[in-house]
Design a protein around this nucleic acid. Structure first.
Lengths: 155, 155
DNA sequence: GATTCGGTGGACAATATGCTCAATCTTCGC
DNA sequence: GCGAAGATTGAGCATATTGTCCACCGAATC
């Protein structure tokens, strides 16, 4: 769907100060409360806003190590059962199927490099996984964000 | 920091129904309102909870294509200026410096495969970027999540 | 010219919030 | 064991917010 400038400002405002309510938003944006409510309802209905956190920092929980693991899988059974098994591992934060040399890419976290080995072993043990390649994220100069995208989409 | 079972349940509850307030949480968890407030304040202070969305789905905004781009950079100037330039591109959702063959890994979105070419061109144009390799995410069987990790950390 | 849609501004009861307090319960060091 | 510190509880209070109505307006559409 398309969003306009007001939508973008609303999202940006909520992202910056998530604890403020609908009424406060309407004051900050100089629009009526009903307008803010209608916009939020619309974006939620259209799937643009999928939820409202809470956003968890794995590092603060002790999971300091982030890695991206490329999986090569045996193609016979398809990737669905593999993904289902990966989903059972808490340290696997997301899984994609990909083009290129590998078959799947997943983001994992671990408490240490040694712990990462344990997590990778769990992944390798999944039925259908033939081989893995890992790269460790040393630093994250740009953490995950969508605000610039929202601004770009909404003017 | 360490979190306990109550913290984990609280986060899970908020993740499941983000629009409920502190009072409602306390009722659902059978604890006092002050306790819920104290737990949330503590987790926010410790950095475990970094914010409260709103969570945006790029696909719903028309950015259907997700890709992971590995960057090879000229090492002379370091990676900071490169990251700064990448941060200026709205379609670049996150950037990591990594071990292994490449130097940086970034997640980008685009409106189509053709649009992805435009985004990659923007990245290649960044001063210090020598070469890129892209893999396109075809499907996302496990979308980004932290709840299983929270449960694992909190019992 | 009529209709529809999004926005406005106001009202209402019901509810939630921020804040404080004293009392109890746990946990930990000693 | 025992005291102290910290966490939790339940309560109260004034204020703010929410959900839900409604009538009205302006712009765009047909």
């Amino acid at each position: 769907m398309t969003i306009d400038h007001l939508d973008a400002r609303l999202v940006a405002l909520l992202a910056a100060e998530p604890r403020i309510g609908v009424l406060e938003c309407s004051r900050r944006l100089n629009v009526a409360r009903g307008t803010v409510q209608a916009r939020l309802d619309r974006m939620a209905a259209k799937g643009v806003i999928t939820g409202y956190g809470p956003d968890i920092d794995p590092a603060a929980l002790g999971f300091d190590v982030t890695a991206f693991v490329t999986l090569h899988i045996r193609q016979v059974a398809g990737h669905v059962p593999v993904a289902d098994q990966l989903a059972l591992v808490p340290e696997v934060l997301e899984v994609h199927t990909i083009t290129g040399g590998g078959d799947m890419l997943c983001r994992v976290v671990a408490r240490s490099n040694a712990d990462l080995q344990r997590v990778i072993d769990l992944i390798v043990d999944v039925q259908g996984v033939v081989r893995t390649e890992s790269v460790i994220a040393l630093d994250t100069p740009v953490p995950y964000r969508t605000l610039p995208l929202v601004r770009a989409a909404g003017g």
